[in-house]
């Protein structure tokens, strides 16, 4: 599904290398997790894949089902099936959450040559999905993420993911700022979307989220590279011993 080879990325405005030759393959239908200490480049990886400005790819490649992601505009990547759940979802005053969702869903359908969803069908679908995530009608009416609690913002990200039904979902520290109950709710939302045709890349600091979203593969990232790859037990190792042991072992 997602194939990253030798990816090197620096900041556009300063001479600072962040990703230093990263290799990663996420197979179709699998859930991969990336853990790593602060500053290892996890969020940069998610932004570069989604197409955020401010980064310069100096080497390497990233493809989604063979299509070169790095050449595409952010909206083209989204239409192709890439989704990034933001660590800090953006507040957009003046744009209703519902309008935002419908615009996004229909823009993607249009880009893929599908017919736009009718207002009625869209409403039915969004209501059902919002209900599962305990998102009430009021949250749908409010401007995007404005006045939402941390938990509401993350649930709103998952709602967008559910509505857009992407092939490749990247979750950037979706557990940050969530209490135990909210984490469970978000994890349930993600688990409901697990599917043989859909892959996940879950970026997190903590093992706890991975108790709820059970990964197939766990990667440890440090200093711009994947330094170790293993099964779910690797996350437990981090939880128990921290990163120091692993980093010492690979260096």
């Amino acid at each position: 599904m997602l194939e990253i080879k030798g990816l090197k990325v620096k900041l556009e405005d300063e001479d600072k290398q962040i990703l230093k030759g990263l290799d990663l393959t996420v197979e179709t239908g699998k859930v991969h997790a990336i853990m790593g200490p602060n500053g290892s480049g996890k969020s940069t990886l998610s932004y570069v894949l989604a197409g955020k400005d401010g980064y310069e790819v100096t080497e390497g490649s990233a493809t989604l089902e063979g299509d070169d992601l790095l050449e595409m505009e952010p909206e083209e990547r989204a239409a192709l099936g890439l989704f990034l759940a933001f660590q800090y979802p953006v507040e957009i005053p003046g744009v209703g959450n519902m309008t935002f969702l419908r615009t996004a869903v229909n823009a993607q359908r249009k880009a893929r040559g599908q017919e736009e969803l009718s207002a009625g069908d869209f409403l039915k679908e969004v209501r059902a999905k919002a209900k599962d995530l305990k998102i009430d009608a009021d949250m749908l009416k409010r401007p995007v993420n404005v006045g939402f609690s941390g938990g509401e913002k993350k649930r709103n990200e998952i709602l967008q993911m559910a509505m857009l039904s992407p092939k490749m979902c990247i979750l950037d520290e979706t557990d940050s700022g969530l209490d135990v109950d909210a984490m469970k709710l978000v994890a349930d939302g993600v688990n409901a979307l697990r599917d043989a045709g859909r892959s996940f890349l879950v970026i997190t600091h903590y093992q706890r989220l991975l108790d709820h979203i059970k990964p197939d593969v766990v990667h440890i990232m440090a200093d711009g590279r994947i330094v170790k790859t293993g099964g779910p037990e690797l996350a437990l190792e981090v939880e128990n011993n921290g990163y120091a042991d692993i980093l010492a072992e690979v260096s």
């Binding site: 400005d53 909206e75 989204a78 996004a104």
Partner: peptide, 16 residues
């Protein structure tokens, strides 16, 4: 620009 990227990352074309 942050809001613009957020919208684009959801598939909304830049002009829209």
């Amino acid at each position: 620009e942050t809001a613009l990227f957020y919208l684009r990352s959801r598939g909304v074309p830049v002009r829209v």
